[in-house]
Structure formats: C-alpha cells, structure tokens
Design a protein around this nucleic acid. Structure first.
Length: 346
RNA sequence: CCGCCCUUAGCUCAGACUGGUAGAGCAGUCGACUGUAGAUCGACUUGUCCCCCGUUCAAAUCGGGGAGGGCGGACCA
C-alpha cells in the first residue's frame, strides 16, 4: 500500500486532520502509532462505535493502535464514575471495545489496551504533571476541556487536571497520532501547544465527526431517545429510528443518514455487502445501494422517502451492532458490576 | 475556626416573611395533521417539598438538630 492509499484510508470519515502535511511526512518516514483514549463513564453507544470503527482502517493502513482505558479520567471528570467502580467499568469498556473492533472487521488482538492507572501514577509522569499545573493557567485549561468535561457553576479541580493528564498520555504512550471525536479538539490543541515544553512532541490530530442526536440537534448521552445503545435490541432500534428526526430531502442534523454514512456503509463495505431498502410496490419497489452517496442523492431528490428508509436503516444498524450486543449479553456480569444500580442482581 | 446563603416535578425555579397537606416554564405522554420524524394545534401526566425531632387541630412554610453544596471572613510566625 503506498502512502497516498494509506493517507486516504486513515483520513476518510474524519472531520479534521491537524495537519495533513505532518501526517504525510509521518507515513513517508515510518510506521506511525496512534492512540485513542476513553474514560470509562456511562454505557457505550453508537457514537463510540463510529469512532471505534476507524481503528480497523488504522490497522489496515499499518498504524500501530493503542486504546487507553482512562480510568482515572473517568473519576476526575465530575466523578462521572465512582472511584470504586473504575475497575468494573474498565473491564466492561474493554470488552465492548473489542466487540466493536471485531464487528468492524478487524482483530482485537492487534490492538494494545492500556489502563490509565498502569502508568499515570509513575513518578516521572506525576512530576511532569505538577510542572504543567504550575505553568498552565486555569482559563487556558478550562477552555481546552470545555467540550469534554462536564460544565458546572462550581467546577471541581479534577476537570482542570484532566486535560493536562491527557496531554501527558500522548507522550507516555509514545503516540504520533492522537485520535478522537472532535469534542477532543480543544484538549489536543493544548497538547500541541504545551507538550513540546514538557519533553514530548506535538501530536498529529485526527478527529472523528460526532453524530447528531436522533431527536435533532446534538446527541445527548443522558437522553435515551437521542441515541442507539450497543445493548439495544432490534425492536428498540426500530422504535428509536422510527421516532427519529428525519425531514425529507434534508441532510443537516439527520441522524439516520449519519448512521448510514459513518457506520453502516463502512462496515458493509468491508463485508462486500450492499444496502437494500424494502419498499412497497405502490411507491416503486425495492432499492439497492452500493454506497452512501447514492442513498444521499436519492434522499435529496425525493426519490427515497424517510418512511421507506427508516425501517431498512434500522435493520442495517441492528445487524452491525448485533455482534457487540451478543458479546455483552454473553458476559452479563460485566454490565451488572459496572452499573449495579441498573443491571445489578435482584 | 467563625459567619452568611442554597436544597421543592426529569430540568430551571416560584411559593416560606403573613402555617390550611404545591405551582409555572421547559421536558415527557397521548391524539389531530402530514406516506417518517419534526413544526403546529388539542388534551393529559408528573412530587419521600434534603433527613430527623419538636410546636400546632394543621408544617414545604415556625423552632431545634443533622447532611450535602456554595460564598465570605479570620489565621498568615
């Protein structure tokens, strides 16, 4: 695979590359390494899946991939995970992520998993963190973390340490590329700015798009109707997609189309399958699509009506999610221990 | 260590001074209209009033104690 192909594979379905020149140089000079970090907080959903699916592209392009389960970060961010549940949630995240990588057509064995507490308590790391804390202003740190850390009138100190640690993670994991959703942009721009002053190099950044909520607007992790969960049954997926905001002929904030674009088609692509819309004869009969662009074109022209698209899209989404759901169902103690108040015994 | 303020529906808050067992907006649910959803109309639902004790015929409301959160002062050899 030549450099142009690798670049294409690595950058497609991203919203921004900082910077493309640096990335090209990186591929010409070496086999790069990339990392993505996840703080094990709430349950994983389809947004995580679209971001994670790209790891399959990285692996195919010969990029060394590390997934960081950022357990300390999960507690630092407004105590989103209780301290004594960090291990259980980390275990759940790891299994769910392995399932997503496998469902995306890659081998989870090819990915290196690391937990935050494996290295974030080391003396070198800690010492450098104190230096950073001394040399970085509160407002700069707040701005960096504003899209990631929970907003509050009385923010905790943990939310300010959060982006500093994330910056040090880049160096500790020896990652050339920092990958994540665009919500991470603020933090990694801070990293690019200050990491060179702390013994590291500015990471090259790749950002994945965030999916719109199914009710229109931003997806909210706490609003069940705005997203599909990895544990949703086909019936629940049908229900949620059926209720989704999906104006005919509009692409803006259209979650159904975004799911197809960023998750369903990339996976069908790897499997060599096409997307079939079952449609009553009354409206013209079934349609078969080989690419997302064809779907979007028909949707924009009015040829493809939302009421026909939705059930087929829901079915395709369920298919893609299914392996992950089954994996989690087989190991139901993972969810029970990670979220005892929801899945716990009795 | 001291002082002041806050805690009421899923969310933001009103009601407290002048006790009579609770309200608004948003959210949510259900219909109508659309070959989906939304928007728009129409209807509806929503509560250990932070906890305990006390006063009273009656406490979200008054008194005492406690918990959680916020702000300030003091201390600064």
């Amino acid at each position: 695979m030549d450099t142009a192909e690798r670049l294409d594979l690595v950058t497609k379905h991203t919203t921004e590359v900082v910077t493309e020149d640096e990335l090209r140089t990186l591929f010409e000079e070496s086999d790069p390494s990339a990392y993505i970090g996840y703080a094990p907080t709430g349950e994983m959903h389809i947004g995580h899946f679209t971001t994670m699916r790209k790891l399959a592209d990285f692996l195919r392009a010969g990029v060394d991939v590390t997934v960081l389960i950022a357990d300390l970060h999960a507690h630092l961010d407004d105590n989103k995970s209780p301290f004594d549940l960090l291990d259980a949630r980390s275990a759940y995240y790891e299994t769910a992520i392995e399932g997503m990588i496998e469902a995306a057509g890659a081998d989870p064995e090819d990915v290196t998993f690391v937990r935050g507490t494996d290295f974030q308590l080391d003396e070198d790391y800690t010492l450098e963190m104190y230096r950073m804390a001394a040399e970085t202003t509160i407002s700069r740190t707040q701005r960096a973390a504003s899209e990631v850390v929970r907003e509050s009138d009385s923010p905790n100190l943990g939310g300010l340490i959060y982006p500093l640690m994330q910056t040090l993670d880049v160096k500790a994991l020896d990652a050339d590329i920092a990958y994540g959703g665009v919500d991470q942009r603020g933090i990694y721009m801070l990293s690019r700015e200050i990491l060179p002053n702390h013994g590291g190099e500015s990471p090259i950044c790749l950002f994945a798009p965030l999916l719109s909520g199914l009710s229109g607007g931003k997806m909210s992790a706490s609003d069940e109707a705005s997203k599909v969960n990895l544990t949703d049954s086909p019936a629940e997926v049908d229900e949620k997609i059926g209720q989704a905001y999906c104006p005919a002929g509009e692409v803006e904030e259209n979650g159904v189309l975004e799911y197809l674009n960023h998750l369903v088609f990339p996976v069908l692509d790897v499997r060599g399958e096409s997307f079939v819309v079952e449609r009553p004869e009354e409206y013209g009969g079934d349609l078969t699509y080989e690419s997302y662009d064809e779907v979007e074109a028909d949707f924009l022209s009015g040829e493809l009506h939302p009421a026909d698209l939705k059930p087929s899209a829901a079915g395709a989404i369920s298919d893609v999610i299914d392996p992950v759901r089954e994996r989690l169902a087989d190991e139901d103690e993972l969810l029970a221990e990670a979220y005892p108040e929801k899945y716990g015994a009795e």
